[in-house]
């Protein structure tokens, strides 16, 4: 129980630190006034100065940074992420996040599912046959896949499966019917999933190989249990520990990967949103997306940690 409280407290401290750092960097290195007013922030005519003063007052820019952070945090907790200064009519940032986040999230979940579905059987096939041609080929292919950056892999997959074979559409259409959109997401998801699957396979295979040398496995084997039964019932679970940990850590890399892959397949998710915002210097949007993404990452790792505690009885206390 103490562990749960400690880990939760740590995750909250981490969330606060990460958001404070991002907020601080944005406000110290960027120019909030410019973000609000655009070029008018440099207007020195009396009317311009008046607008600047009004904006300063409206957005409390004269308050000290910590006060502004706390106000922003308070708004954030209530779902208010500020407004998109660069868009006509200055719609709320929250609207943008609500529109874009689900697509990125679905893409990520799909990718993680694919990676797991590929990696587990792959490792289960390779581990009992250490150093067989299959195992060697697996190891070589994991090396090759990991060395191929996701954007390059995306371009290759797009060329082969979308352009040459025409199995998948080349881009994403946001208003297509649901089954079509799912179909459109498969290739991008595979782009993200393949390198992850290679990492998972390598870890799981190594863990399985060492588990299979443990005495309780020898015991099970000497009792005449079938190979499949030993693999699934006895060896898999104790071999999953590192897999679960890396699953969480990999999520960070996958989030980065999805930002890139979204751009290749023209998926209007958080990736394209943050890039557009950076180009337009719409900092409330950048700030919101960075904080949202980092929070998701921290929460995922927190959950993974909890799962880890459940599957590893040594930690559950």
């Amino acid at each position: 129980m103490g562990r749960v409280v400690r880990r939760t407290g740590f995750a909250i401290i981490l969330l606060l630190t990460v958001s404070a750092l991002t907020f601080g960097a944005m406000n110290l290195l960027g120019d909030p006034l410019f973000n609000i007013l655009g070029p008018a922030a440099a207007d020195t005519t009396p009317a311009g100065v008046e607008r600047i003063e009004a904006a300063r007052a409206e957005y409390h820019l004269d308050d000290p940074l910590p006060v502004r952070y706390l106000r922003w945090l308070g708004d954030l907790v209530q779902g208010d992420l500020g407004v998109q200064f660069s868009s006509a009519g200055q719609p709320p940032v929250a609207d943008l996040v609500v529109e874009r986040l689900p697509r990125t999230a679905v893409l990520l979940v799909l990718a993680q599912l694919m990676a797991t579905v590929i990696a587990i059987p792959w490792a289960l096939l390779a581990a009992p046959r250490v150093d067989s041609w299959f195992d060697r080929l697996s190891t070589v292919s994991t090396f090759l896949v990991v060395a191929l950056p996701n954007f390059a892999l995306g371009v290759l997959l797009k060329y082969v499966f979308a352009i040459r074979l025409g199995w998948f559409p080349q881009t994403y259409t946001a208003d297509a019917p649901l089954p079509d959109r799912f179909h459109q997401l498969l290739l991008p998801a595979l782009t993200i999933a393949l390198p992850a699957a290679a990492v998972y396979q390598r870890l799981l295979r190594d863990d399985l190989v060492s588990t299979l040398q443990e005495e309780f496995i020898l015991m099970a084997r000497s009792k005449g249990l079938s190979r499949a039964r030993i693999l699934f019932r006895h060896a898999l679970r104790p071999s999953l520990f590192s897999f679960v940990t890396v699953f969480g850590l990999t999520t960070g890399a996958l989030i980065g990967g999805s930002l890139v892959v979204e751009n290749i397949f023209r998926i209007p998710g958080l990736g394209s949103a943050i890039v557009e915002a950076v180009v337009r210097e719409d900092f409330p949007v950048v700030l919101a997306i960075v904080v949202v993404v980092a929070s998701v990452f921290i929460v995922v790792n927190f959950v993974v940690d909890a799962v880890y505690a459940v599957i590893d009885p040594r930690i559950r206390r």
């Binding site: 981490l14 630190t17 990460v18 750092l21 991002t22 960097a25 944005m26 290195l29 960027g30 999520t251 960070g252 890399a253 989030i255 980065g256 990967g257 930002l259 890139v260 943050i274 890039v275 950076v278 210097e281 900092f283 950048v286 997306i289 960075v290 993404v293 980092a294 990452f297 921290i298």
Partner: peptide
């Protein structure tokens, strides 16, 4: 803290500033 930012997101943040 540094590892809490997905690395590409951190890179985007810094280059944008």
């Amino acid at each position: 803290v540094l590892l809490s930012f997905p690395s590409l997101v951190l890179a985007i943040l810094i280059t944008s500033l």
